[in-house]
Design a protein around this nucleic acid. Structure first.
Length: 578
RNA sequence: GGUGGGUUCGUAUAACGGUUAGUACUCAAGAUUUUCAUUCUUGCAAUAUGAGUUCGAUUCUCGUACCCACUACCA
């Protein structure tokens, strides 16, 4: 009988969700949607000691940001479902709330002779491990050692029953069969075999907290929740034989899910899998969202770094999978159509932060000027700018000069002005926040750069953690508005004399509101006078933008308008003299 | 150490057993531009290694090397 596709993502709330975890969730989601099935989220919190407050919420919020929505397990408000309902028939979806279920199944296994009670304390096992190690061996709890340890196999029944009643630190262990070959099939790796003699008797259930370990809980829940495919990280491959054996022991082989083990995400450099430290060290996020741990350490997130969720998801999807052709750009809905497990690669994928940026740039370019303006407005506001909807609104807000929708004195700008700025700068940005670094001088006059803490032509990143966006942070002589390097290079009589003539030319330009100042006219004017084009233009740019490199002169003039052009040129003369 | 998995340009990856081993990112050079960036063009750069099977191997088999995971009363 054909079963409805049902897959699950089963994170453990022991910390923030790593980007590798997001990819696992994504592949599960894509697979489910493609097969018209359900995507279930289940919280695997069977390790009470490693529980981290807030981690569960974080995981759900992170998936939500990525556009990965659960069909089952999480309600509309983003909470883990605790009571069964038609939409969430298998509640609770938090394993710590399903305690009784696992105990029953653990006992069933003991009854069937597939598992046994073990009374060794963690200390005793530690001791045994040490002894073994000093003898040059590795201790494993298996058919060779279980006969010498204290468990329901070696103790007689009455003693065993007494121990079960009086002690609360025993466990249930799986009894690994002897010298049997387990044959397994993996959707990405194909056929595999392993001999049970190399495996150990894993703990399935702990009396101490009356909770199962991962292995038992996982198999029981996947069975009860009618999971058809288990798509998880490669780190689980070694326990696959145990899971196969568990299904067999329960007699559930007929409905055992298919397994797919995904390749790991590796460090951009060096060896090993991607870790939180790599992000700090190499300067990129490893988490989807920002996370602050109990010690107050902050880990950056893709969201806070300015990545679009579509770009993040697209980038993640292509790490370990490809469509089989040269296409690289896919929305999550397009991925649903083209994704397939048999195109998942087997080897670990080394993460490349540069490619992540490239994806963001591509998605930024797909957005309209209006959309980007909308996203940029909060950034501008954080820098002390006020954005209004129309010129009339600007006047109402107290603007004194709205010819181009821009008041450089009171920092009031119309939405249309912002959209115009996007139009001329959009090809230069990777992130929305880049627009400020690229075009801050289209909002703040060079004379005020110092006060605003902007070093011309450089990122404002250094100044991030201060509340007042207008504080002064640069006091040295290289500080904006005019970088020493540019002044030295371009502020020479043969350049600035022509610049003042250009000011006159621009002022006299008969273009009304200067909706579209013709750069060619200015060029002709400069050429006509026999001045050196490059030098004069750079000098002019320094006057207008506070830096000799950046946007096109005509774009700057068109944006700020001729009155502001005049003011800025007057200002540079007053500052640098002649 | 043991067990399992993996190995194509620096990175991500493509290639019914037959291709000049392709594409993207990065990098370099050139063109365009008033600067910078963008854009365009070009370029650099790979089948870990040794056998075997085959007319023919990146592709199949075995060995070697290297990498990774697991080896908890963690997931």
């Amino acid at each position: 009988m054909e079963r409805k596709t049902r897959v699950r993502f089963a994170p453990s709330p022991t910390g923030p969700l790593h980007m590798g975890g997001v990819r696992t969730a994504l592949y599960n989601y894509l697979y489910a949607k493609q097969h018209g099935g359900d995507f279930i989220i289940r919280i695997e919190d069977t390790d009470s000691r490693r529980f981290v407050p807030g981690a569960e919420k974080y995981i759900i919020e992170a998936l939500d940001w990525c556009g990965i929505k659960a069909d089952e397990g999480i309600d509309e408000e983003g909470n883990v479902v605790e009571k069964p309902s038609p939409r969430h028939p298998h509640a609770p979806y938090r394993q710590s709330q399903r305690k009784e279920i696992y105990r029953k199944y653990a006992e069933e296994l003991v009854g069937k002779g597939a598992a046994y009670y073990a009374f060794d304390t963690p200390e005793e096992l530690e001791e045994a491990r040490k002894d073994s190690e000093s003898a040059g061996n590795t201790f494993i709890y298996n058919r060779e050692t279980r006969g010498k340890l204290r468990n329901s196999l070696t103790l007689d029944k009455s003693e065993c029953d007494l121990l079960l009643k009086t002690r609360n630190d025993w466990t249930v262990r799986f009894m690994m069969p002897e010298n049997a070959i387990v044959e397994m099939d993996d959707l990405v790796r194909g056929h595999m075999e392993v001999n049970t003699d190399t495996l150990d008797d894993k703990v399935l259930w702990k009396r101490a907290d009356e909770l199962p370990t991962y292995h038992l809980a996982n198999i029981v829940d996947d069975h009860l929740m009618e999971i058809t495919e288990v798509i998880r990280g490669e780190e689980w491959l070694p326990s696959l034989p145990l899971h196969y054996l568990l299904y067999k022991a329960f007699g559930w082989e007929g409905t055992m899910p298919h397994f797919a083990h995904l390749p790991l995400l590796l460090k951009p450099d060096g060896k090993g899998k991607l870790s939180k430290r790599d992000g700090d060290r190499l300067g990129f996020p490893v988490f989807p969202l920002k996370w602050t741990n109990s010690e107050g350490d902050v880990s950056r997130g893709y969201r806070e770094d300015g990545y679009f969720p579509e770009a993040f998801v697209n980038m993640l999807a292509m790490l370990g999978w490809n469509p089989g052709d040269d296409r690289e750009l896919f929305t999550i809905d397009e991925l649903v159509d083209v994704f397939s497990l048999d195109r998942v690669v087997k080897s670990g994928a080394r993460f490349n932060p540069e490619k992540a940026k490239w994806y963001n740039k591509e998605y930024l370019r797909k957005k309209s000027d209006e959309e980007l303006a909308e996203l940029l407005i909060p950034v501008l506001e954080s820098h002390g700018m006020q954005i209004v909807d129309c010129p009339v609104c600007a006047i109402t807000a107290g603007a004194e000069f709205t010819v181009n929708g821009a008041d450089f004195k009171n920092h009031i700008y119309t939405r249309e002005y912002v959209t115009g700025i996007i139009k001329i700068t959009r090809d230069r940005a990777v992130f929305v926040k880049d627009f400020w670094d690229i075009a801050s001088y289209l909002f703040v006059s060079p004379e005020e750069f110092g006060e605003y803490g902007i070093k011309a032509g450089e990122s404002t990143a250094k100044a991030e953690n201060t509340n007042d966006p207008r504080r002064k942070v640069y006091d040295d002589s290289k500080t904006a508005p005019f970088p020493a390097k540019d002044v030295e290079k371009f502020w020479k009589p043969e350049n600035y004399m022509p610049v003042s003539k250009c000011a006159g030319f621009i002022d006299g330009f008969d273009g009304g509101l200067m909706q579209d100042f013709p750069g060619e006219a200015l060029e002709d004017f400069i050429r006509g006078n026999g001045w050196p084009m490059g030098k004069v233009m750079n000098c002019l740019r320094m006057a207008l933008a506070g830096t000799a490199s950046g946007l096109g002169i005509a774009d700057i003039i068109t944006s700020i308008g001729k009155k502001e052009v005049g003011r800025r040129i007057d200002y540079i003369y007053s500052r640098l003299g002649r």
